[in-house]
């Protein structure tokens, strides 16, 4: 999911940085100091969770978790993902500094949109469809992040088009897995700490 440095064109890097700055500003404005500790801890948990390998078939994939974070935090997912990715760039050298804007935007905005769909389903149907809404949130988060990543690559250089299509195709099974994992995780949280599902309200 991370695009390395040196892949994207200046215009795409600039647009990604600007959009991330905007999203982060919105997220930070809605975030008060009573909840900032929770957001920081969930950001750290997002970091740890995204390193976990989930077995699929004979191999394993790692989760993206942006849909889950969006569902839990809403717009605060922007600063949370920005902090986690900056730490990843610092500690593990995934992504990197110039691609930070684009990588944050693809994941965080995907998460925010997925959270909107999740909340709309909950608002219409109530808690009855919590599991279905969580599945949609998780799957959509990854799908949108993959789509934005592919778009960023294609806008940078049209030669990347086929590579971007391949990347998107590779995300399809991850999307389903992410949906299933988000479903079970949200169902667990709803039983163990239902107040956690209202952090973003």
């Amino acid at each position: 999911m991370h695009i390395s440095e040196g892949v994207l064109s200046p215009a795409v890097l600039g647009a990604g940085a600007a959009l991330t700055a905007l999203g982060t500003a919105v997220g930070l404005r809605r975030l008060d100091y009573d909840r900032i500790m929770t957001v920081a801890l969930l950001s750290a948990a997002f970091f740890v969770g995204s390193l976990v390998h989930i077995p699929v078939g004979v191999g394993s994939v790692h989760l993206v978790l942006n849909g889950l974070l969006g569902v839990l935090l809403g717009w605060a997912a922007f600063p949370a993902i920005l902090a986690a990715l900056a730490l990843q760039a610092l500690l593990f050298q995934y992504g990197g500094l110039t691609a930070l804007g684009v990588n944050t935007f693809t994941m965080a905005f995907g998460g925010v949109l997925a959270a909107w769909v999740y909340k709309t389903i909950i608002r219409i149907s109530g808690r009855g469809l919590l599991r279905a809404a969580a599945f949609c949130g998780g799957a959509l988060g990854v799908a949108l992040a993959g789509l934005f990543t592919a778009a960023a690559m294609t806008f940078s250089d049209e030669s990347f088009l086929t590579a971007a299509e391949l990347l998107l195709l590779a995300h399809l099974p991850v999307m389903l897995l992410e949906g299933v994992m988000t479903l079970f995780t949200v169902a667990f949280i709803a039983k163990a700490r239902p107040e956690m599902l209202e952090i973003s309200e």
Binding site: M37, L42, A44, G49, L177, T185, I189
Partner: peptide, 26 residues
């Protein structure tokens, strides 16, 4: 499904513990 559900519950537990810890730290 069993493996995934178990790992999702562990992940949920990680988030719950992170949340509790954040409340205490706050």
């Amino acid at each position: 499904l069993h493996g995934w559900r178990t790992m999702a519950c562990l992940l949920g537990l990680l988030l719950v513990r992170g949340y509790d810890r954040s409340q205490r730290a706050c």
